Simulated assay, not measured.
Amino acid sequence: MMNEKEESVFDLVSYRDQKQLQAEKNAKSIYSLATDFAIRYSNIREKVRAKHLFRQQIYFHQELPLPNYLEELFQQWFLFDYHTIQGETMFSLFLKNYSNRLTEPEMILGALFLTTYVEPFEIIEVSQESRTMLVRDALEAKKFTITLCSNEITYGNKGEYVFLRRLPLVTKDWAVGPVFSVPSNELAKQVIFSFMESKKNNSSLTWRAFLKRQGYFLLAQVPLK
Rank of each mutant, 00 (worst) to 15 (best):
N3Y: 01
E4Q: 14
K5F: 11
F10E: 14
Y15W: 09
Q18I: 08
K19P: 00
K19A: 01
A23R: 08
A27M: 01
A27P: 05
K28E: 09
I30R: 04
Y31D: 06
Y31P: 03
A34T: 10
T35L: 09
I39Q: 13
R40H: 10
R40G: 03
I44C: 10
A50T: 08
H52E: 14
R55K: 15
I58A: 03
F60W: 14
H61L: 11
P65V: 11
L66G: 07
N68H: 06
E71P: 02
E72Y: 12
Q76L: 10
F80Q: 00
D81S: 11
Y82H: 15
H83D: 08
H83Y: 14
E88D: 13
L95K: 13
N97I: 03
L102H: 05
P105E: 01
A111N: 14
A111M: 11
F113T: 00
T115D: 13
T116G: 01
T116K: 00
T116E: 00
P120V: 05
F121R: 02
F121E: 02
E125S: 10
E125P: 02
Q128A: 10
M133D: 06
R136Y: 00
D137R: 05
D137K: 05
E140N: 15
A141Q: 15
K143E: 13
T145K: 02
I146K: 09
L148R: 06
C149S: 12
S150R: 07
S150N: 07
I153N: 09
T154H: 09
T154R: 09
Y155V: 12
P168K: 06
T171N: 04
T171D: 04
V176I: 15
G177V: 05
V179Q: 04
S181N: 07
N185M: 04
A188K: 01
K189W: 07
I192M: 01
F195H: 00
M196W: 01
E197N: 13
K199F: 03
L205F: 03
T206H: 02
W207Y: 07
W207R: 07
R208M: 04
A209E: 10
L211N: 13
L211Q: 12
L211S: 09
R213S: 13
R213P: 03
F217T: 06
V222I: 15
V222Y: 08
P223R: 13
